[in-house]
Computed example of a mutant assay.
Amino acid sequence: MSLATKTTLAAIKNDLEGYIGKKISLKANRGRKKAMERTGILEQIYPSHFLVLINEENFNRRLSFSYADILTETVELTLYSKDDKKIRFSVS
């Protein structure tokens, strides 16, 4: 892993830290024409991954994704501002 990639992953982590506890939508490519779209709460940030709490019909579910998933565009995030405006998360 190159130094640029490490700093890029750190930048993604730092950008997401401001959205802990806030609503986000995600679209995850699971391969073989399988995609998942969910809306939940960004629950926790860890050094190499983050957790999203999804409230489904009868239970809560936690999904884990790595920052590399965002970098490789396997996962697309949409963040919500205080007034519920959608902000597409992109790597700068």
Rank of each mutant, 00 (worst) to 15 (best):
M1Q: 09
M1S: 14
S2G: 11
L3T: 07
T5H: 00
T5Q: 07
K6H: 05
T8L: 04
T8C: 07
L9P: 00
L9W: 02
A10W: 04
A10C: 10
A10S: 11
A10M: 05
I12L: 00
N14C: 01
N14Y: 00
L16F: 09
L16K: 09
L16H: 08
E17M: 04
G18Y: 02
G18L: 06
Y19W: 15
I20S: 00
I20W: 03
I20F: 03
G21F: 12
G21M: 13
K22I: 09
K22G: 04
K23F: 06
K23E: 07
N29F: 13
R32W: 09
A35T: 15
M36E: 14
E37D: 12
E37W: 10
E37R: 12
R38E: 03
R38V: 11
T39V: 15
G40A: 06
G40P: 04
G40H: 08
L42G: 11
E43C: 03
Q44M: 05
Q44D: 05
Y46V: 02
S48D: 10
S48Y: 09
H49G: 03
F50L: 02
F50Q: 02
L51I: 14
V52W: 01
V52C: 03
L53V: 12
L53E: 11
N55S: 15
N58A: 12
N58R: 14
F59C: 03
F59A: 12
N60E: 15
R61E: 09
R62P: 09
L63I: 08
S64F: 07
F65Y: 14
A68E: 03
A68W: 06
D69H: 10
D69M: 04
I70C: 09
I70A: 02
L71V: 11
L71I: 12
L71A: 15
E73M: 06
V75R: 04
E76D: 04
L77T: 00
L77C: 06
L79Y: 08
Y80Q: 02
Y80A: 04
K82T: 08
K82R: 06
K85A: 06
K85L: 02
K85C: 01
I87R: 13
R88C: 04
F89A: 06
S90I: 09
V91H: 10
S92E: 01
S92D: 01
